[in-house]
Structure formats: structure tokens, C-alpha cells
Simulated scan of single mutants.
Amino acid sequence: MSESPVVFGFGAHSTITDGPQLLRLTQQADRDGLDLFSLSDHPYLGARLDAYAALGFVLGRTERLAGFANVTNLPTRPAPMLARAVTSLSALSGGRVVLGMGAGGLWDRISDMGVARLSPADAVAAFEEAIVVVKMLAGGGPPVSYQGRHYQLNQIEPAEVAAPKVWTGSVGPKSLAATGRVADGWIPGHAADWLSARYRESRPIIDEAAAEVGRDPSEIGTFYNLPGRITSEPLPAMRDGQGRWIGGSPAQWVEELTGAVLQHHASGFMLFSSRGGTPDPESLSRWANEIVPAVREAIG
């Protein structure tokens, strides 16, 4: 993935028959200089491609584009095996992997997969332990042991590859604090942007938790999922009456995203369609060739 401090990508929700389209879009994004793509992870939905199988397939057919699950359905993917999957993908792709992590939201469907239901507090505790375990099982070195409430390791060898960056989809206060203690990035939930109340109320929780354990809060980036339209003409407003992002002309996008970086310290943006799904090829091309280069130039 690009060494730029601000990254640009797109998100896809791909069905089991969407493989050819997903490959075309990701190869287009790779050629056009985007940094990453993301796939949702809902393994209880038979109509969806498995996120990690699709990540491996796409990474093998692209050259510089990074991939991540936005976000990994942790309860169905035990942390030690998740660590092996992401470090293997990283080794095979030259480090083009980000680990998106979530505590698990749709517990009725998760439990339908035969996974024991956790209380909200236990789910967050398991989520924080999982991030610790994944990082322990990367970077090489001697065998490691770990005794947590939800995960245990006994003299397990770490992979000889650096741990990928971990971005979370934390929403509640306890999960946000866990992000501050152990993660590398945060994706605000419900496609909230940098002007939203959700961002203003949530980000200080991350920063305070990071500072309490001696971390520099500025090292934890904020990455935004942005479902919106790219229009030929400017829109009267880029947000609706509830303050939710709706899009605008390329010039409007550039102005807003540049301000997000320079004034609100945004670390990255992922384009989705206005309905929250996969962007169409034309919108993805305008994003990559008109908006992203202009923002990169404006932020230096």
C-alpha cells in the first residue's frame, strides 16, 4: 500500500456471482493508483463471497492495491487462525493487507452459525484480546504464550512477517477505548464523517484511552467510508438534513476532503455507492482520476 499518510480506496459488497466484476473493478483501481479496496465480511449470508477467499484472489491479480475486510466478523474467525490468514496474505502480496476488526454486531445471525453468543462486554473483551493475539503472532521471534479470558496461546511461533495495520469499526465506548489501547486506525460507524456528532463524541474516547497507556493518539488514524454520488454539477448541499454525506461535484468532493485532512486530520477515505454498495465503474474512475489526485496535490 502507498506510503502516503492519507490513503484512498473503495468498498465493495460482492455476491457469489460478482467475482468477474470485482476483479475488473480492483484491477481498474490498481491501474488508476488507488491504495486499497475493502470487502464486507458476513459469512452467514450465502449470497456473499467469502471476504478472505476474495481478498486472496484479488491480491494475486493486482500489483499495488491493498485489501481488507471492512470489518472482519471476528466471532466466526478465531484470532490465532485469523493471524495466520492475514500474515500469509501479507507475505504473499508484499504487505498489501490491512486487518479490519469488529467485535461482531449481528449476533442472531452469528449464533446461527453455531458460534456461542457473547454478552456485549465479553464481545468487546474478546475483540481487544484478538488484536493483541494477532500482533503477537507476527513479527517473528521466539514462541509466545498468552493467557486471556477468551484466547490462550502456548508456545506458538509467530510468523516471520510484520503484523498488518489493524483498523476497527468500533462504535460503543468500551470498544472505542480498546481501539485506543491496541489498534492502529478507526472507521467511524454508520458512515459518519468528520463533521458528525458521532465522530466528535467518539474520537476523544479513543484518544484518552491511547494516552492512558502511553500511546500517541495521533498514531491512530481515522478512515471514512463515504457512500455518495459524484455529480457533473455542484449540489446545493453535500449533506442531507440529518447531516449525512450525499456527495457532489468533483470540485465539492476535493474541497471537503482536503478540509477533512488539513483541519480534521483524516487519514483515508473509501468510496461506496450512494446506496452503500459497490461503486459503478464510471464513478470509481472519476474518484481515482479526478478527485483523488486533486486532493493529494492539495494536501501536499
Rank of each mutant, 00 (worst) to 15 (best):
G228F: 13
V7C: 04
T72F: 07
A192M: 00
L22W: 05
A266L: 10
G172T: 10
G140K: 07
H150N: 10
L34H: 09
G185E: 07
G241T: 06
P204Q: 06
L92Y: 07
A125C: 01
G221R: 15
A125S: 11
T72K: 01
Y146K: 01
G33Y: 14
F68I: 03
A54H: 02
E157I: 07
V182E: 12
E208Q: 13
R84F: 00
A138F: 08
I131Y: 05
D50P: 04
I16Y: 02
L118T: 03
D35G: 08
L195E: 10
G105D: 11
G248C: 05
A121R: 15
Y199H: 13
D280L: 13
Y151L: 09
D216Q: 07
A294I: 09
D50A: 08
A125P: 01
A130Y: 12
T76M: 15
L23H: 01
A69T: 06
N225H: 10
H190V: 08
G248A: 02
G180A: 09
A29C: 10
Q263V: 08
S88W: 13
P293C: 09
T258E: 14
V292S: 07
T15W: 13
T76G: 05
V124P: 03
G33D: 09
R244A: 03
V97L: 02
L176F: 04
G276D: 12
Q242G: 14
L45F: 11
R181L: 07
L45I: 12
P143N: 02
F10Q: 10
E157G: 01
G185Q: 14
A266S: 02
V161E: 07
A54D: 09
T76Y: 06
R149D: 10
A79K: 05
